[in-house]
Nucleic acid binder design. Structure first.
Length: 100
DNA sequence: CGGTTGACTTTCC
DNA sequence: AGGAAAGCCAACC
């Protein structure tokens, strides 16, 4: 599947298991470009609402949501991801371990 | 083809 | 510790 970077991002995000999260940089690194984290966010931003891609499982390196909505936090909490009082996720515990 | 943009990351102060 | 600035990359216009 040597499609566009776009498609690759969607594919990787889809592989993230429920209750797990991944950072933009982590995905970029997985695709071969550690520096392309911004592009990953760019791709997810362009994602339509009804998409089957679990975009809410993608967060920034600080373990916080980067979107302008709180929907992402709600969706994650429904999957069992806990947020501390500062709105941060414990990356050491919920960070994606890789495909399967 | 070239400048702009952005749901990032890292480094410096 | 926390905010500001710089660096980087692919898609858009």
């Amino acid at each position: 599947m040597a499609n566009s970077f776009f498609e690759n991002v969607y594919h990787v995000v889809t592989m993230i298991r429920p209750g797990r999260v991944a950072t933009y940089g982590q995905i970029a690194t997985y695709l071969g470009n550690r520096r392309a984290a911004r592009t990953v966010g760019w791709a997810l931003r362009a994602l339509p609402e009804g998409s089957s891609v679990p975009w809410h499982r993608v967060i920034n390196s600080q373990g916080r949501i980067s979107t302008s909505t709180t929907l992402q936090r709600v969706l994650l909490e429904e999957e069992g991801v806990k947020f501390d009082e500062r709105g941060c996720i414990d990356l050491n515990r919920y960070l994606w371990e890789g495909p399967q």
